[in-house]
Design a protein around this nucleic acid. Structure first.
Length: 261
DNA sequence: ATGACGGTGTGGCACCGA
């Protein structure tokens, strides 16, 4: 079973690229962030025609918005973090049936945080606290779980093109990295780091200053899996190809392969 | 130091992202 995460930075603009990518990569589930559209504008027909007739959508106007696109039926869909009041559409979760039992998938567009001394950073920390408390409940209620999304956090110096110059700036602060570790401490592993990966592997590059061509990027899109699932993880790869498209998203997909048969 | 690029909105630029 393949599950991917991709921040598309407007599904309206990126739909043709999403359809092209799914045609080339006919995975079971694709988790999207930054839809930047309301639910009534979600392109369900086109995705159904592509084989993704089961969609859990949580959009909003202008900003944020997340969705799980699936070939398999989705159950127990939840929107946002239970018990955490939030006006922004940032989380959608659903369960799929596998031959080995139910699999819970949580898709998040984590708060950016702007700058470490800002109100938005304080919101990021509150949001992460809420996410962690709720995920603990999700894991005990649903069993094996995959957490994917745009975390807006680099885990360590390997995840950034400039570890010295960007030290303690947004996406690189100790506070954010402690939150990253606290999520793992719930009983999950960073699937990407289960494998030897190319040096300077990133999932996001700024649109400006030819950052992609110069590979000045960050790895901020992640896939965590419950420890119980670790033996079934057969690969976890970043697919840089869509970043080379015309009018690309600034993020590129990360793909998990789980042996679930 | 700043802005650089790209998306959205009801716009003639501001706001936001990372």
């Amino acid at each position: 079973m393949k599950i991917a995460t991709w921040n598309v930075n407007s599904l309206t603009i990126r739909l043709p690229q999403v359809l092209d990518w799914l045609a080339a990569n006919p995975i079971e589930m694709l988790c999207l962030q930054e839809l930047k559209l309301t639910d009534d504008k979600f392109p369900l027909q086109a995705l159904e025609a592509a084989g993704y007739g089961h969609c859990a959508v949580f959009g909003q106007k202008t900003y944020n918005g997340v969705a799980i696109l699936s070939r398999l039926p989705l159950q127990a869909i939840e929107r946002n973090i239970g018990g955490f009041e939030d006006e922004q559409a940032r989380v959608v979760a659903a369960t799929v049936s596998t031959p080995q039992g139910p699999l819970r998938v949580v898709n998040g567009y984590f708060v950016n945080g702007q700058a470490p001394d800002s109100d938005k950073f304080a919101y990021k920390m509150r949001w992460l606290d809420g996410l962690r408390r709720w995920l603990a409940e999700q894991m005990s209620a649903h069993g094996p779980l995959v957490l994917v999304g745009d975390f807006n956090i680099t885990a360590d110096d390997r995840d950034t093109h400039d570890p010295e110059g960007l030290r303690e700036t947004i996406h690189h602060t100790t506070a954010e990295r402690d939150q990253f570790k606290a999520l793992l401490a719930l009983g999950m592993v960073d699937a990407f780091r289960l494998f030897e990966q190319p040096e300077k592997s990133y999932s996001w590059w700024d649109y400006r200053e030819m950052a992609f061509r110069r590979n000045r990027g960050l790895r901020i899109d992640h896939i965590f899996v419950s420890q119980a699932l670790q033996p079934q993880v057969t690969s976890c790869l970043i697919d840089r190809a869509p970043r080379k498209n015309e009018r690309p998203s600034d993020h590129t997909p990360v793909v998990l392969d789980l042996a679930m048969d």
